[in-house]
């Protein structure tokens, strides 16, 4: 017996998501297939974006501005940061647009709406895996052996995913009602990129601004990726735990806000 009423309060319907796991699979498939349909290079575009940025950054920041890359070749220094960053930027963008791009699935049928931002994140996860493979190839090319530190990548990737999902879910909830989000997002992402240590190293930030700088969840992720693959940068377990606590808090808030607002999606969309 199901009950439909105005004052239903269920926080997070995990069981329902499991019931719809096949739909999640096909939504992800749709995401990937439609993105690369009718293109010559197809999934190759997943590689081109970070590689292109790597080349541009290497020329501008590495060669011209001569930014310190802490003893490793600038190309891999920046690529190592671009791999998680590209996932984060595209994941947040896609999950933010996931509800407004699928209005029909909100106003004409009931599905657990959380599947839409989830599938957007998973879809970008495939690109992330491909970019990681390129990173490993580059490590071999530059003969860099990360050693056991590489295991840090697992908690860092977890941090990366929940940060992108948490932020994307809050923004997509807002975007249903306020389309401004969609227009503000591209430059929000730009600003976040320049305030993350993608093109430079966080040791270049003066000490008194370090705390402020570290509020950005991508600082830990990017510095952590460099530490685990290249051995540069400063990262410790405490920083990762602090960021994880922050990201999980954001995620819980976003899930609460999403489920609370979900009831009115069909009326305002």
């Amino acid at each position: 017996m199901q009950k439909i009423s105005a004052n239903q309060n269920s926080f997070f319907k995990f069981k329902e998501l499991i019931n719809y796991k096949d739909l999640l699979y096909f939504l992800v498939l749709k995401d990937i297939k439609s993105r690369y349909a009718q293109s010559v290079i197809g999934i190759g575009w997943a590689i081109i974006q970070p590689v292109f940025f790597m080349v541009v950054f290497t020329i501008i920041f590495g060669r011209l501005a001569k930014i310190d890359s802490e003893g490793v070749p600038y190309a891999i220094f920046s690529f190592c940061a671009l791999v998680p960053w590209t996932f984060f930027a595209n994941g947040v963008t896609d999950s933010t647009n996931s509800l407004t791009a699928n209005i029909g699935m909100i106003t004409k049928i009931y599905i657990p709406r959380l599947l839409l931002p989830i599938s957007a994140i998973i879809g970008k996860g495939i690109d992330f895996l491909i970019a990681l493979i390129i990173l490993v190839i580059l490590l071999f090319y530059y003969q860099i052996n990360p050693g056991l530190k590489v295991l840090y990548v697992f908690p860092l990737t977890f941090l990366l995913i929940i940060s992108a999902f948490g932020i994307g879910t809050i923004l997509t909830t807002l975007a249903v009602q306020y389309r401004d989000i969609k227009y503000a997002l591209p430059f929000g992402i730009q600003i976040l990129m320049y305030s993350s240590p993608i093109a430079f190293s966080s040791s270049m930030i003066p000490d008194k601004y370090q705390t402020l700088f570290a509020i950005n969840p991508m600082v830990t992720v990017v510095e952590g990726f460099r530490y685990s693959f290249l051995g540069t940068g400063t990262i410790n377990t405490n920083m990762i735990i602090a960021s994880l606590v922050g990201a999980i808090t954001v995620l819980l808030i976003s899930l609460y806000y999403f489920t609370k607002t979900e009831k009115s999606f069909a009326d305002v969309a």
């Binding site: 199901q2 009950k3 439909i4 009423s5 105005a6 909100i106 106003t107 004409k108 009931y110």
Partner: peptide
Amino acid sequence: KITIPTTGEALINGKVGSLLE
């Protein structure tokens, strides 16, 4: 279940399939 009522409630017994479009 696409939208919720402003007041009142509905009880549904069984799996619902809807075809509004």
